[in-house]
Structures are given as structure tokens and as C-alpha cells.
Design a binder for these strands. Structure first.
Lengths: 356, 356
DNA sequence: AGCCTCGGGTTTTACGTATAACTAGAAGCG
DNA sequence: CGCTTCTAGTTATACGTAAAACCCGAGGCT
């Protein structure tokens, strides 16, 4: 007696409820095969672009046209399952409110889009957080990872995954990284130093970031080295978090101290430079006549403030693009060389000849 | 006759080449089942949290502990294939270089992370582009879409997908949208008008965006209405693209025209306000003594410029968070009500009493 | 006793794809 | 001719999971 028949209802609604009209059950490769009068395998071969000598041009075209008229689109979950991959990469950055990373992200997404890859974003906890596992919280299965050096804490968990890892704005030859892509920070700082030395400046304040990552260490080292060659050039360092307010505070403090009054302030970032300019104004100093200030990164605010900031323009989008391209290369089995992208000093209104 | 036994070799190297040491073949639910001495189905039931009366607490615990010690993590591609979904949502915005959208994105990602969803970003072509199909370029299979009103062009393709769609910063009751989430733009503009009227201003310049989307239309309408009640209040409108430079140009032009010299400039965005301030300074006007200026959004540059901008603070992250939460609700079959998030006027240095 | 229910599982199947292994006919060839 | 090789496919299987359908022993009810 075949009971168990009378409960028929709960078969539908395979989708929780939403999605409205259930988007009329997409066509599968089998549907295409039926329409084209071939086997499913043949469809797969044709769609996979790997049918060089396996399928005749005639049938290939038949398959393609059947696919087109059915609006066939491969089910990517199935393909991923079969191939053991995900077409998804993780981008790890500390915060998107930082315009630099927002631009890097833009670049990453742009080339990911070209390659049919999805980018899922993981916001690394801001230093304080317990650096929870990205794989637990994000969609967990990934093909590769792009990470900023400023997100170093999260890297332990990532390394554990054994995934291809491209480091951005980070130590070239970073251990465990499959590739690295950086703006040429050192050269940027050299350009700044050259520019200011050429204007006659000798006493500098280096307004540095208070966090200790590659990108900032390089700035400091490059500055020291660039100044070494010039007799009488001295530099004092003050550290501050990367905000306008902190830059202002740190500058006020540094300028209040006796001795070694700088004629130029070299900042690790534009926000610090903006703060420095504000501080100078409050102290009655005129920028750039009394005091030169340089920024770094070339954020939007660099041209919003007055005078506009002389700063080093970092190719943020290009970093993202190159990083994503490098990751694609790694995924394809190639091994890209470390890249250092050129930067350039943009001379605007905050630097001038040193007072004599 | 059971032949077909003798072929054993060509089984390995399932991964194309990359990935280095092949990350030691992850444990599957079957491995867990074997370890726990149960069937694969039982593992699936236990891990799926849907085993209320189907599995005893004893075996459930056995399964969990086996899973833990094997480091089992479900293969999401397989789960997706089975369930016909993707745990991936698409966020459509015009650009991330716009700080507002970067912050919205941050909010979206934050709550997506909580729900184990991935966010893939689609950058809608900047108005000029041919609005290519997001599904072709991005990872194509999605559970839902979040879109900004400024990305309206791409919506046709999205609507075609029949996916749940949450509109951000957009017309409530937007056709085809499953939900909408906006900052309360109208109220923000009312607060601006009230503030300036209270300071004695009567002649206004409205420095507006040149693009025609909900968020900007609302500003204009709210401003007109707020001014309607006050005798003698007049407003002229000037349009410009949302950049500092264009704001500067538009302001210079507007102030150069004879008649109706405004005492206050109300801007649709902070970047326009920054431009307006620069223009005023060039014309020898002192902000705020001679001219008041207000912004909108409260971007980072609002506090970087001097004087700092009086502006309407939009809860960008909250918009992203609420939007993502609404999408999750829709995915769960609920129907969230349209949300209007409160905004607040932040009074800083660019507004003061009108000259008498 | 005969029957149903119910707890606690197991077996089986399906999701849609990619590809290894097989096959059949045609051609090459000494 | 008898052998291999090439072309153009087909068949069969596996990927890892979710869940429907089945199964079995122990009570419970009448």
C-alpha cells in the first residue's frame, strides 16, 4: 500500500519565498544539448572553448546557436564544484573610508570584472580587534587573496589557507606572498627631498604615521638616505595617527618645542599635511612663505584645501589593477615578478623657497 | 562481468597547476561521517542546524566533535548547487572614489560579513558607458542586488534578472524595488534652511548637482518648500558637476552676475561647498563673515578645509547596513518597510549671521 | 494482537557541469 | 589486407551537499 502519497504540497517553493516569479528555471547544458541534437558533453566542450579538434565547426555552431536562443548561461556553482574553485577572490584592507584603499579597490574590481571574477571584501579589524578568521565570516571558499600590508594581523589565518596571496603596498619578497605590487614609495620620498632641498630647505620635520608597516618604514628610510648626501640637512620625526586632527596636534606640539625650528614639514600622508597647514595657520605662520609642507598620496582633499597640497601622487587604482592582474597570473600558474609602480611629485601651493 | 577494475592511475592533480602544495584536500561531510560512525546524511542534518527531532543529542555531539577535529568546512559550491543559490549579492554604485559610496559599501560589507554573504561590486559605467550587463561581467549568479539611485542606467539589466532588489538613496516606492533605504535628505535640507533663516539670511544661491537623480531632486524640492514660508526669501539655482573645481567655477560665475547677490550658498555636496569657499576667497569675500556656505554629506574634506564646513551629516555606513539588512530580510521572505534614516546638521565654521 | 506513531537514523537521488575513457567510422599505409 | 591513427563524437562518472523517501524497533492505543 503506497501511503505517503497524500502529502504532496511541500514540494514547491525551493526558494524561501522571495524572488517573485521564480525566474523561470534557467536552461541547463542538457537543455541545450537536446535542442541541438547532441550530447551534454558536447555542449560542455563547445562552451568551454576547448574543442579544437574534438568537435566539427558545424555542430559547434549548432550548439552555440541553440545556447543563444535558449539564453543558456552556465551554472557557475556547478562548474565551481566540478573544478574545485570559486572565481572569487578576497580583498583584505583595513578600511574603505581611507580613500587610498577605496581607489585600490576600484582598480581591483575593474580587472576582476574583466576576468569574470568576483571580489569579496574583508575589512580587517582595526588593529584592536581580535583578527577573526576571514574565512569563517566571508563566503569562505576562495581562489586567492589580495591583501594590503596594513592588514597584516589577518594574514596568519589567510596564510593557513594555503591560497595564492598577492600583497599590495607591501614588502617585496614578503614571505608567503605569491607576488607583490607596490607604488614606488622610496622614489616618491626621494622626489620630495630633492624638491625641498632644491628650494633651500635644510631643517625638516618628518610628520610620520604612528603605525609601523612597510609603506611607512620605507618613507622614513628613503628620507634619511636622501638627506644623507646634503651637508647640514637635519630631520626630526614626530608620529601621529593618520587624521587631520592628530596631524594638527602633533605639528603644534613639534613647533612649540625649542631649538631646531623646521622650515619644511614632510608628511607621510595628505591628511597629516592638511593638519600641519591648519596648525601653521593657527601659529601665525604663512604656508608656504614661512613654512613648506608636503603630503603623500594625493587624496581628494589635497586640492580641496587652500593652498593646495604639494604631494606625491600614488597610483592607487593602478596598484589595484596590477595586483589583480598578478593574482590572475598566479591562478594561471605563472609567477609574476614584483612590480614597483612609478609615482610622481605634484608641485602645488604648499612649498616654496626657504626663508633666508 | 565486472571488468573496469584495472584503471587506477590518472586520478590526481585535480587542480590546474597553481595553488602550490594543493592545500591538503579538505575534509568532506563524508569524511566526517566516517569518523563519527554515521551516514553522510546525518552529518548534513547536524551541520544544517535542522535536526530538531531527527538526531539524538549524543550522535549530534559526536558529529560536531568529529567535524571540529577534522577541520571540516562545508563546500559552499556544492551547497549552492544543491540549494540553487549563491550567498552572493551585487552592489551597484557609480564609483568608489566617491567617499559617500565607499562608506555605504563599508556598511554593506559589514553586515554581509555577519550573515556569511559575499558582496561583489559592480561599478556602473559613468553615465556615458553603454551600461553593459552586470551579470555577464560579474560572477553572474546572484541572490540579490543592492543599487544606488545614481546607477539607474544599469537597472534595466538587473530588473530583467528578477532578483530581489534593494534601492539605496533612492525614491521610496521605486518601481520594481523590494525595499528602499534612504537618508532623510529632505529633513537635512530643511535643517539647513532653518539654520540659515535663523541667522537672518534671505538671498540664497543653491549650488546644485548637474545630475538628475532622486537624491538631488529631493534637495531642491525641500529647499523650495522650506523657504516658501518666509517672506522675502529668494533662491537662485546654479548647477555643476560634483567636483571642487566645478564648484569653484560655478560660484565665480554666479557671483559675478549682477543683481541678487546671495548672502548664503547652499550646496548639494561638500565638494561643491569647498569649491564655493575657494571662489569666495578669490573674490575677496570672507567666509563666513561676508558669505555663509553649507555643504552636504560630511565628507572627510569637510573638516580638512579651513574654515571647516557647516554641513549635513549623512549616515552613509548606516545606509549600507540598513540596506543589506533589508536585503537579507527579503531573502528570508519578509518584506521590510522603506526606511528613512535620520540626518543631522553639523554647525561648523562656514555659517554666520548675515551682514545687515 | 494488530495497528499506528514516533524517534532516530540510513539510502538514494538530484543539483549542472567537466572530463576521462570509450567507440565507431574513415583514412593512411606498407 | 590488417594495422594504426585520426576525427567526431558519446557514455559514464565525480565533484560535495541537502533532503525526500524509506526503514526499523519501541511504545501506545484500542
Amino acid at each position: 500500500m503506497t501511503s505517503g502519497e497524500e502529502k504532496a504540497q511541500p514540494r514547491d517553493e525551493r526558494w524561501p519565498t522571495a524572488r517573485g516569479p521564480r525566474a523561470g528555471a534557467r536552461a541547463t547544458s542538457r537543455d541545450v544539448a537536446r535542442a541541438a541534437g547532441v550530447s551534454q558533453a558536447t555542449v560542455s566542450l563547445v562552451m568551454g572553448e576547448k574543442w579544437r579538434g574534438r568537435v566539427s565547426e558545424r555542430t559547434a555552431e549548432a550548439v552555440r546557436s541553440a545556447a543563444r536562443s535558449l539564453g543558456y548561461r552556465p551554472n557557475l556553482a556547478a562548474r565551481d564544484l566540478r573544478l574545485g574553485r570559486t572565481r572569487t577572490v578576497l580583498l583584505v584592507v583595513p578600511a574603505l573610508t581611507n580613500e587610498f584603499f577605496a581607489r585600490v579597490h576600484t582598480g581591483v574590481v575593474r580587472v576582476a570584472q574583466e576576468h569574470g571574477l568576483g571580489v569579496v571584501l574583508y575589512l580587517s579589524p582595526g588593529g584592536t580587534g581580535p583578527a577573526q578568521d576571514p574565512f569563517a565570516s566571508a563566503s569562505a571558499t576562495l581562489d586567492g587573496v589580495l591583501a594590503s600590508s596594513m592588514a597584516a594581523e589577518a594574514l596568519g589565518a589567510i596564510r593557513g589557507g594555503g591560497l595564492p596571496l598577492v600583497m599590495l603596498d607591501s614588502d617585496p619578497g614578503h614571505e608567503g606572498a605569491s607576488a607583490t605590487v607596490n607604488p614606488d614609495i622610496a622614489d616618491g620620498m626621494r622626489q620630495v627631498a630633492g624638491h625641498l632641498l632644491g628650494l633651500g630647505h635644510r631643517r625638516f620635520l618628518h610628520l610620520a604615521s604612528d603605525i609601523d608597516t612597510w609603506t611607512f618604514r620605507v618613507r622614513a628610510r628613503a628620507l634619511t638616505e636622501a638627506l644623507r648626501g646634503t651637508a647640514g640637512a637635519t630631520v626630526r620625526t614626530e608620529r601621529a595617527p593618520l587624521t587631520v586632527a592628530d596631524g594638527l596636534r602633533a605639528t603644534e606640539k613639534a613647533l612649540a618645542e625649542p631649538g631646531h625650528r623646521p622650515t619644511a614639514i614632510i608628511c607621510d600622508d595628505d591628511v597629516l599635511a592638511a593638519g600641519a597647514c591648519k596648525a601653521a595657520r593657527r601659529l601665525g605662520l604663512h604656508v608656504p612663505a614661512d613654512l613648506s609642507v608636503t603630503g603623500f598620496t594625493d587624496l581628494a582633499l589635497a586640492t580641496a584645501v587652500e593652498p593646495e597640497l604639494t604631494t606625491v601622487q600614488l597610483p592607487a587604482e593602478a596598484v589595484g589593477e596590477a595586483g589583480m592582474r598578478a593574482l590572475v597570473a598566479v591562478l594561471d600558474g605563472r609567477t609574476p615578478a614584483p612590480e614597483a609602480l612609478p609615482v610622481r611629485l605634484v608641485t602645488r601651493g604648499t612649498t616654496a623657497h626657504a626663508r633666508t
